[in-house]
Design a protein around this nucleic acid. Sequence first.
DNA 1: TAAAATTATACCTTAAAGGGTGTAAATGTT
DNA 2: AACATTTACACCCTTTAAGGTATAATTTTA
Lengths: 79, 79
Amino acid sequence: MEWDRKNTIAQFVRDRRKKANLTQVELSDFTGVGLRFVRELEQGKPNVMTDKVNQVLLFFGHTLTPTPISDETRRNLGK
Amino acid sequence: MEWDRKNTIAQFVRDRRKKANLTQVELSDFTGVGLRFVRELEQGKPNVMTDKVNQVLLFFGHTLTPTPISDETRRNLGK
DNA sequence: TAAAATTATACCTTAAAGGGTGTAAATGTT
DNA sequence: AACATTTACACCCTTTAAGGTATAATTTTA
């Protein structure tokens, strides 16, 4: 699979972080995940571990849950 | 972290699989993930990889996305 | 309740995620 | 343009997720 900076999770984290005026380093510190992970997450690394993701999402009051695929998602299936 | 058979993803997969009248073996075959993974997923293994989860969720027309934590989730934070 | 089917547990192996650190590139500021 | 800050990339190391298989327990069916 390919990296996709525009995937839902990547975009969400980056947007929220920006809005909170935090650097990647700060987000890393606050959430307890490694700096490397924050970067890979925001750059859309395809294969990440749910608990690490949630560790970050929780900071923004969110969590990973199954949701119906959007038309957007459906369109990008064939990548 | 502890295993939690009642976590959102675990419950979702098990419910959907049941409704579809599939065995874990069949779901494993159809989605391409290992049988062991299906089981761990349904039993609420805390640490799983997003792409494997999505491989299963996609079969049910869903995908992992960040969503606001529910009161339920908030209550269970302290585990 | 006995047999069959489904699900759960245990052991081992392999592949890769996550982390730390150092460096390069990009972005922003004065 | 020079400088400081932030972000991206590359290296190696340790840990562990996922898979296969074999066995036990549980549930379902006849």
